[in-house]
Design a protein around this nucleic acid. Sequence first.
DNA 1: GCCGGTATGCAAAACGTTTTGCATACGAGC
DNA 2: GCTCGTATGCAAAACGTTTTGCATACCGGC
Lengths: 334, 334
Amino acid sequence: MTRPTIVHLAQAAGVSPTTVSHAFSGRRYVDPDTKARIVALAQEMGYRANPTARRLRSGGGGSVALVSSMPFAVAAGPSRLGFLMEIAASAAVTALSRNTTLCLVPPLERGSQLDALDVDGAIVVEPALDDSVLDFFFERAVPVVAIGRAPGRPDLPAVDLRSAETARLLLDHLGQQGQRVGLITGSQRRNSYIEMEAVYAAFCAEKGFTPAAMRIDERGGEDEAAVAVEAFLRQTPDIGALCVPVDAFAAGALRAAAALGLSVPDDLRLATRYDGMRARLASPQLTAVNLHLDQVAETAIDMLTGLIEGRSSSPKPIAAPLLVERASSARSSR
Amino acid sequence: MTRPTIVHLAQAAGVSPTTVSHAFSGRRYVDPDTKARIVALAQEMGYRANPTARRLRSGGGGSVALVSSMPFAVAAGPSRLGFLMEIAASAAVTALSRNTTLCLVPPLERGSQLDALDVDGAIVVEPALDDSVLDFFFERAVPVVAIGRAPGRPDLPAVDLRSAETARLLLDHLGQQGQRVGLITGSQRRNSYIEMEAVYAAFCAEKGFTPAAMRIDERGGEDEAAVAVEAFLRQTPDIGALCVPVDAFAAGALRAAAALGLSVPDDLRLATRYDGMRARLASPQLTAVNLHLDQVAETAIDMLTGLIEGRSSSPKPIAAPLLVERASSARSSR
DNA sequence: GCCGGTATGCAAAACGTTTTGCATACGAGC
DNA sequence: GCTCGTATGCAAAACGTTTTGCATACCGGC
């Protein structure tokens, strides 16, 4: 009744477990007849190697974690989809094609019991400065690849999201008619915010206008952003364009504009970073950037498997970010 | 340099591995002083039990798979988010709180190497008739819980999505002003389609109008739906309302209506099933149903862990589906 | 008749835990 | 002094693989 093991199969085939193992792994020669007999018998008995035993002996093999340090249960509702999940979808596909499974790990809260987490590596999405998620894996000596560089850890293998370029793309586009451009980022210290803020500072200096930037706590999501952006716009009424990399915040900004009677894009041009459903289906549709997340996910998985197997990671570059112009930043007709 | 094992720790503490094991598991009494010493030393040495070894000895423990048989790489773009991913997010959170990890498994294509998949159970989202995903797990004697009953397998544990009620809700709403209502489902044989089609037949008989239904292959996604629905509407011009449970198809239906110069909701009232981002951010927003997917995911995880541990599954019921009225089916003003 | 090579397969030692049955020591009760 | 419970801990056997070194048999060449 119990599941057949390699010993049962070996007995049935009249050979040793060693031979059975070799027959399947191909690591040593096995007489073709013998092998055929074993395979046929395995089929018949429904034998299937126990993956746990296999990985105990052979060390690791077969699964990586995908983790975000962004709130994901906290910011309930639609915002928990999007960026992370799009990466998850691509990464799962890629991982599977590398014969690896992908474990989805929600943000680690303090006291989370994660002993069960048994992975050979981890992909951490947009780690923040001093991110405890990174420590968690370091303690366990689990190799990590970050998506988006890890602030304060220039040595950590990462897939570069090219945030500086992305920022430049957005800002140049938003300010192309001479508008004063504002910037809304998150208060968490993620590399994309940091790079964007730096590019923004340079941009302002170049154009000769005073920076108008604000940071919002990610945990508040769209609602908090709507309130905060409204206050921000009241305070800086000469802002003609707003760069809002977090799509949930951009949705909040749309609401803020509406509340103030500002028309988008005529009174306020708006653009966000991640070209996901939120950007595509907002009204008006949001100008955004194609970050090639499918490539990013694939590259991250490849780097990680490389790291796990001790190969030096090939830093396959991601295609340059691509501006996707939409109605929210259409050239003003006024 | 290598990671310390229980033997190293035992040596360092001057006890046997047995005692160390008991100190952590609490399955036998260990002198408090000894235990404290062991724990302190473990901390210092960075000892952490190897989960693989643990599960080999103790049998299973710690991970479940989430699988959809819906195309997910095939239907690229935005449609690969949504339903499955919302469930994934909730399920991952619930799973973690049960000290279990969630593996995301993309649709199994023929020949997929899934030997690495080492899970104690699986949640299959909306299985179709004769779904090969189910066979895959049966072969491996992995317990399965379905989300949405499995057609042809009334015995399979499942979380009921209450599709009949959902259908009734949508149809009654759409037909409330006497319109003739059409139905668009998927050509795959999933329980929700089957139930909806049955309710629809009864509904038509009741109201005394000829059914107008169509099935579309899911793999075509929104684009194929746009084309198909346009043809469908041309052919049955007296349709005043359309029930389109698949949100990607509903988005296609919107495009079809626009192409035909039909205004939604004035000329055509529209409603879909899953109240996700797609419904909320479409223009006009789509009337949809709150299926309580967070509850569904949590219940599925609970049933599955129950099944794995041999407990009889407690069939905690899901809250009744709730109609969320939006602009796409607003009461016609004409 | 001996040597070297190839073909085929096995025994036994890992891998790092958990679990079970047994052992020792010690104090209390008689 | 003997028995008995309780406190504490250990040895050894699992769990199901993979891996490594060794064994046997056979064949051809000298």
